[in-house]
Design a protein around this nucleic acid. Structure first.
Lengths: 224, 224
DNA sequence: CATAATTGCTACCAAGCAGTATAAACATAG
DNA sequence: CTATGTTTATACTGCTTGGTAGCAATTATG
């Protein structure tokens, strides 16, 4: 039982001086680990049944703990939802930023962006889908914070399209509007992809790249 | 009060023979009208607050009736959800079929399809969005019926892409896979469009047309 | 006007669930 | 072994809400 408590006694052989600090640090890590595990299981239920339809009792049962356990790591059910939504969009944003940090032409960067973000979205489908479906359940303040992240994502993507437009690599009338279509296409993957379904993750990623490239390709057909 | 009951006495001056039949017919129409009104208000709440978070009491209050009133027109809450989801996808499918019935080249037909379906999706955003978000709340059997409609939609769209591919108008490797991206792009409008937001419905529709045309355009740039 | 049928409402129940007060178990330190 | 703090469980509450049984009001008919 107590899936979460398996880690409790690893701090037991180290020289006195460091012990205090190290023990405190370890405790923090364990707390963080427990929070992650709770979030992970909650996301499974939210994904499968929806936020409102999921009971914290069922999440607790899955973890072999009880509801008050969850309440000692999260303030309430809404905080769980917020963290799940936040995770989904934050991972995508980080993937975007990392991809943008790779040197290259706009075309090359765009390809890397789509590839990495699409992969991240597939790997974290639960988080992204819950965000797309349950945004309305967030507290207004939480919803705003999430929207800001999303807006940052769209803005950075638009900047890349703008860059490609200036260099002549892309043909996009309104970079910021096109960015929303691209980001929508990527989000759509989360709602539509099904593990073990008709198409593999790799096929979906490659398709996404192709589609986005076509969406920005100049009429003349220059640049690949 | 009784917003729904305003229609009750229109059947009162007509020759005897027809009266019976006409009265019965009118009654049916009134029943149908009440059902539509209930559905419409319910869709507003489901759209704004989500299915689970919406109480039938609040829907009833909005209609100036009581909960048992709703239960005399719908079996239960789930039936309301089913009809809302069904409406969303059925309207899109009908729009697609009507657009396909217009004679023309594949390119011309595709443009009409995207234009009409996008318009329908914007006009019926509530129904489509609820379908996309709350599919998981449907009974398995209802969910299957809805999926079948969706599948029909994708299949007919794929056939159009296939036709354009054969005529050389489109460059699509896998029509059925591309159809899913196109249908996703259209669905995305429902989740993203916001009345009175930064972009008008017309702009969104025109953008959608442009994006889809680019997604299927041959590299050479022939056919517009 | 009386009778029958339809239509809607009042009042209620049972169940489910978020959240909590309190106690128990456990670990740590002296 | 005792004292102290921390972690987790037991057991409960208060509220919400889908759904219903039975009654009242309205309408249709002769």
């Amino acid at each position: 039982m107590h899936t979460l408590a398996l880690v409790t006694d690893i701090a037991d052989h180290m020289d006195k001086p460091k012990k205090k600090r190290a023990a405190a640090q370890l405790k923090d890590e364990i707390t963080a680990y427990k929070r992650r595990r709770i979030l992970e299981e909650a996301s499974h239920f939210f994904f499968a049944n929806g936020y409102e339809a999921t009971t914290l009792d069922s999440v607790a049962e899955q973890l072999n703990v009880t509801k008050p356990f969850i309440y000692s790591y999260y303030k309430n059910k809404g905080e769980l939802l917020y963290e799940i939504c936040q995770t989904g969009i934050q991972l995508s944003l980080t993937a975007l930023e990392e991809a943008l940090s790779v040197e290259g032409t706009a075309s090359e960067q765009l390809k890397i962006v789509v590839e990495r973000v699409a992969r991240i979205i597939i790997e974290n489908q639960r988080y992204v889908t819950v965000y797309l479906r349950e945004e309305k359940c967030l507290l207004p303040e939480d919803a705003r914070r999430i929207r800001d992240l999303r807006h940052t994502f769209d803005t950075k993507l638009a900047a890349l399209l703008e860059k490609g437009k200036r260099s002549g690599e892309f043909d996009v009338e309104h970079p910021s509007r096109t960015a929303i279509w691209v980001s929508g296409l990527l989000s759509w993957i989360a709602l539509w992809y099904h593990e073990g379904g008709r198409w593999s993750a790799t096929e979906v990623v490659m398709d996404a790249i192709t589609m986005v490239q076509k969406m920005v390709k100049p009429a003349g057909g220059a640049h690949g």
